[in-house]
Design a protein around this nucleic acid. Structure first.
Lengths: 235, 235
DNA sequence: GATTTGTGTAATAATTCGATCATCGGCAGG
DNA sequence: CCTGCCGATGATCGAATTATTACACAAATC
């Protein structure tokens, strides 16, 4: 899980009166690295929003005090904060009404928390160039540049060829320079959870990458080992 | 295969009535280095859990005796043990229900045993990360700054290298400046409760840290001894 | 279908770490 | 002042972690 600073600073307000739902949602959002603020009724939320507007709002349409639509409208009067609506009805009309009022997305109950998290990511990315999750960002450093579009890699002016996995791994590390990743983290972000791969596989890939990009693979300058923790890319 | 102590000590309970499934699951988990405890019905599992709570529970939703949901609830009442549900239906509602009850992940049958192992690892990693709450807060003082993301430490403008344990310990102390910690407290927060370590080990680590961060290690300015009590970090 | 390339795993070697021990030095109460 | 703790120091040794190499099999290419 990539835990970037931007995310850690991202405050998400959840307005939902059913604790069973808000708890799970809160758990997943926190786990995804966001800060979460919970409200159980619309009026309380509105009061707080008058003080501070969060970076994203998740709103139940049906709320005590002040319903989601009204809150959406009142928020839109004052800001462009991204809004995601939770609707328990499958009514198309709800959807339309919500979107017309300025919501950015909506999720129909019952939903999986994971789906909600990905929508949050999508909206943030769309609205405020949240990028990150994007695997097609170009990386450019003094000695290394990678272009995911063409999947080409240039090291010290020399174009080199990387295999698929090698490219993905180096790209992931280079996109988060200096940040340390454990073998398991790398496995999860590059191979995913759908298959079990032995962590030592990461070790081997790192070694192969070193042979390709380091001037002295035995004393790596860029692909560094952090003992007992993992690996990191040092530009 | 990497056979670390942490894993060798990790006990996973599998509650599943179909032998064909539980056998394979058990085989793969053992191969991945975990200790496995098998149960074929919910009640038996619950009895055992009353005695000893394992490190992770894999639960079939459909069970004789006591179903997965009920067992999840009863477990959650007493502990935060990570739970992974096995569900044979693709029903969204099962997913939601399970997650609302506090399960950490779920796998839909039919699943590959490898995927299950991946998820086990992912859940365990997430949990152990959560436990080290605030373990990724940056600390910044006049003479010391530490960044857990990159695991780098800068003392008086000079980047120094700390080993894993050294970093964890200094970070813990620096995160709570001026607060005194006994050796036992430090052992518990940095090493955890799962293994017994001689308290004098802390002494040795403190000494090594002093050598690395103090201008005069014999007269420490930052890592101070509080006689008969413990140590503290003075900014 | 044969050959080349890519990938994961296993076995083995090389490091690094860190827990413990033994000993020394200093603080405090009698 | 002395003595009984507690902390500091230095060295050592086993264990855990990473590096390296070789190999098997799969997938892609010709």
């Amino acid at each position: 899980m990539s835990m970037d600073n931007e995310k850690a600073m991202t405050l998400i307000a959840v307005v939902e009166d059913e604790p069973s739902i808000s708890e799970v949602v809160s758990l997943y959002l926190k786990r995804a690295g966001y800060q979460v603020q919970l409200f159980t009724d619309g009026l309380a939320a509105q009061e707080e929003f008058a003080r501070q507007i969060p970076d994203l709002v998740i709103l139940d349409v049906m709320l005590p005090g002040m319903d989601g639509f009204a809150l959406t409208r009142s928020l839109r009067d004052r800001s462009d904060v991204p809004i995601i609506l939770l609707t328990s009805r499958r009514e198309e009309s709800d959807r339309i009404a919500g979107l017309e009022l300025g919501a950015d997305d909506y999720v129909v109950k019952p939903f999986s928390p994971q789906e909600l998290v990905s929508r949050v990511r999508a909206v943030l990315r769309r609205i405020s160039k949240d990028e990150k999750t994007n695997s097609d960002v170009q990386v450019t450093f003094a000695e290394l540049s990678m272009d995911p579009q063409t999947r080409t890699t240039v090291v010290r002016g020399q174009k080199i060829s990387l295999t698929a996995k090698e490219f993905d791994m180096l790209h992931h590390l280079a996109r988060h320079p200096r940040q340390v990743f454990s073998r398991d983290q790398l496995l999860e972000s590059i191979w995913g959870l759908s298959e079990y791969i032995d962590p030592s596989t990461v070790t081997v890939h790192i070694r192969r990458l070193r042979e390709k990009i380091e001037t002295d693979p035995a004393a790596p300058k860029h692909l560094q080992t952090v003992w007992g923790v993992g690996y990191k890319f040092e530009p």
